Computed example of a mutant assay.
Amino acid sequence: MDPFTERQVVAWVAAALDQGRGGHIITPNIDICRAVSKDPALGKLVAAAEVVVADGMPLVWASRLLGTPVPERVTGADLIWSLSAMAATAGRPVYLLGGPPGVAAKAAGELAGRCPGLEVCGVDAPPYGFEEDARELGRVRARLVAAGPSVVFVGLGFPRQDRLIAALRADLPRAWFVGCGSAIAFAAGAVPRAPVWMRRVGAEWLFRLASEPGRLARRYLVDDVPFAIRLLARSLLVRR
């Protein structure tokens, strides 16, 4: 994990864009870390990103227990706003890729409304599994390259979004790609986000579980919570 605040991530991206350098941002949470722990290929995918910041308070707590603290939680759901604000100020276009039909377009309107001067140069909501179809992937690639964005938010969930980013980066070497999960849906208001106080104390997952129990119950309660407990326990033992 890079020890960056959200503000430092934005400054890093802005400086890189000014220098003509692109990159890839990944924001691992507990679920991503659990997946990486089981699959070395996913570990290499994460390690190849230019910026990797902790999206999850258990990761922040674990870093503190280990004596190598990261300063704060940095989420894709927050970066979509702060990076868009930077892009608006700098006159750099952004692109939204992912989400259900209509959601990316709604998110584009919300972002433009809150970031005066922002140019959303394109939105795309390809069907599930499009990356396995050479023709559909070619269409997505062609639309993205033609739009020529400086920042691309890809909301397909890990690892699909980050594998896609790895495949597309060579086509836009000066652009920054952000694997942002549900951030596009959050920005559109299609999915409610937890109150700020719940995010700060590490309880956002409880809000999301209550909002989407059918989809998230197994992931959170069976997979992620036990992994988080083991991670924190091991971090404490290693520190001692």
Rank of each mutant, 00 (worst) to 15 (best):
F207Q: 11
P213Y: 05
W205F: 06
E6F: 09
L232F: 08
N29M: 03
V53P: 01
L216W: 01
A217C: 03
G181W: 01
A14L: 05
R218N: 05
A167F: 01
L79K: 02
I165N: 05
A170M: 04
E136C: 08
G122L: 03
A14P: 09
R230D: 13
G20F: 14
A203W: 06
A104G: 09
V51T: 02
A105Q: 08
P58C: 03
L221F: 04
G109N: 14
D55E: 04
L59Y: 12
P192V: 13
L111R: 02
L221W: 14
L216D: 02
S211C: 15
A167P: 06
P40K: 02
A203H: 08
R234S: 15
M57L: 03
W176V: 09
D2F: 15
W197P: 07
I30H: 01
A88L: 03
I229S: 13
G202F: 12
G157C: 00
K38N: 11
A228Y: 01
D223P: 11
V238W: 13
A210L: 07
A210Y: 12
R193Y: 10
V201C: 08
P126L: 05
G98A: 02
G179W: 01
F130T: 10
P213Q: 14
T68R: 15
L144V: 08
G214Q: 13
F177H: 05
G113W: 06
A88C: 10
R114N: 13
S63D: 06
R92Y: 09
A183N: 00
V53Q: 02
G91C: 04
W176Q: 04
G129V: 03
R139Q: 10
W61D: 06
G109D: 03
G20M: 05
P116M: 07
C121I: 07
A85W: 15
A108Q: 11
A167H: 05
A187F: 07
S150N: 07
P40W: 01
L144I: 04
A170P: 09
L237D: 12
L118M: 13
R7T: 06
E6T: 13
R64P: 14
A104F: 02
P69R: 09
R21E: 11
W61K: 11
A142W: 13
P40E: 02
A104V: 11
W205V: 09
L66F: 05
R219G: 03
G99T: 00
R135W: 10
V13W: 06
L144K: 11
R199L: 09
G117T: 12
D78M: 12
L111S: 09
L97P: 11
D224A: 13
C121A: 15
A175T: 14
T5R: 13
A108F: 04
V154L: 06
A14W: 08
V151G: 01
V151F: 14
D162E: 12
R239V: 12
R7S: 10
V178F: 14
D162I: 01
T27Y: 00
G56R: 04
L144A: 05
